[in-house]
Computed example of a mutant assay.
Amino acid sequence: MPASAPPLAARSRAPRKAPANTRYQALDLLATLVAVVSGEGRVLYANAALEDALGISRRSITGSALQDCFTEPALLQNALNGARDNAFAALRYDAWLKRTNHEPLPVHVVVAQTEGVGEVVVELLPLEQQTRQEREERLMDQAQANKELIRNLAHEIKNPLGGIRGAAQLLQMEFSSRPSGQANVPSPPGASAKELIEYTQVIIHEADRLQSLVDRLLAPHRRPHVVGDVNIHEVCERVRSLIVAEFPKGLRVVRDYDTSIPEFRGDREQLIQAVLNIAHNAAQALVERIQAGDARITLRTRVNRQVTFGKQRYRLALELHVIDNGPGVPDSIKDRIFFPLVSGRDGGSGLGLTLAQTFVQQHHGLIECESQPGHTDFKLLIPLP
């Protein structure tokens, strides 16, 4: 053995650097597009999402210059030069990613150094996806603010409301028991005891109506979360039967189910109420089409894989769509439809969607809405096991 060669034992103890294709396999679990490149921009590893977005095989991407995948390659080259010179830890900018047989994709680029010598991670977040994530974060923050607002407001209303109702009942008893023409309580000029009793009944009735509203506001926070096995299609069928019973003519409720969706743990009654609130709102918005006989609500179930929402990534998620062909959500309230007491319909309480969002979030899920005239789609996302 030559003198310069290290002993076999020493060579066996020397740390071995794992190949890039094994060291970065976990990147395939990400929905964002990720590449590990050398300081010059040569691709050392591309995850499955980037492979799908570019429309070319991973083998073809590996070893190529990532800069060539952009409409403005100089931007990435400048970022890589800065990373190589330790000018920054991470750099962000917007760019356009070229794709095979498709229009360029607008992406938000994040260039970051790694612990590996001469390796840089380039993450590409489609701007549409980034916008969606920001919208989800707003919905989550909004729902939490709604929850605190509702609980505080309901408790503030409840106490004086009980006092008002009690005082009205005492007045009613006083007016009912006193002989005609006698009074310990002054009466408005010309008002009879019968009229005064009617006034107190109005007060009691309105107090009861407000009490009912307060109880509905507090319902999601009072009722325990009863968990059991849930078949989402049983939920949909229950909602469908209730809607058809209330709107027997002029409205067609279409089933579009993926029957392979597994059961999951959840509160069946809460989910029925959430879907019913959305479907009932849709039916009420379809009044003109119901009269014309062409109103339609579609209940669609699908499975979404490797989906991220609520700042978490899930291997499987249920997508339940409630789609109608009505006039759409008014532009004036599109950004506020999940706020309490916001309604696009005269006489509406504005609680249906707020409660639906609360119930779905108790299942670690989220409700999103996309609406335009003739097509409104409420999408419920719930993680699956």
Rank of each mutant, 00 (worst) to 15 (best):
P2S: 07
S4A: 01
R11M: 04
P19Y: 09
Y24K: 05
A26K: 14
A26S: 12
L33R: 13
S38A: 01
S38I: 03
G41Y: 13
E51Q: 07
A53E: 11
L54G: 03
I56P: 05
I56Q: 12
S64E: 06
L66V: 08
F70H: 06
T71W: 09
P73G: 00
A74R: 15
L76E: 10
G82A: 14
K98L: 12
R99K: 00
H102F: 06
P104Y: 11
V110W: 14
A112T: 15
E115C: 00
G118I: 07
E123T: 15
E123I: 11
L124F: 07
P126V: 04
L127K: 15
L127C: 12
Q129Y: 10
Q133L: 14
E134L: 02
R135Y: 07
L139E: 12
M140H: 08
Q144W: 09
A145P: 10
N146V: 10
K147M: 09
I150T: 02
N152H: 11
I157S: 03
I157Y: 14
G163P: 07
G166Q: 15
F175A: 09
F175Q: 10
S177D: 07
P179E: 04
A183T: 13
A183F: 14
P189K: 08
A193V: 06
E198V: 02
E198W: 05
Q201V: 04
Q201N: 13
I204T: 03
I204Y: 08
E206I: 06
Q211L: 12
L213G: 12
L217Y: 11
H221A: 04
R222T: 01
G228I: 08
G228M: 15
I232E: 04
I232R: 09
E234M: 05
I243N: 14
E246Q: 13
K249A: 04
V254I: 12
D256T: 08
S260N: 11
E263V: 04
L271D: 03
I272E: 14
Q273T: 05
L276H: 15
N277M: 03
L286I: 04
G293H: 13
T298F: 10
T301K: 06
Q306C: 00
V307H: 10
V307M: 11
R315V: 07
L316M: 06
R336A: 09
F338H: 01
F339M: 09
L341P: 12
S343N: 04
D346N: 00
G347N: 11
S349L: 08
L351P: 12
T358Y: 06
F359H: 09
Q361R: 11
Q361C: 00
Q362K: 11
H363W: 08
E368C: 03
C369G: 03
E370M: 10
P373Q: 13
T376P: 12
T376N: 03
D377I: 04
F378P: 01
K379C: 05
I382H: 01
P383H: 02
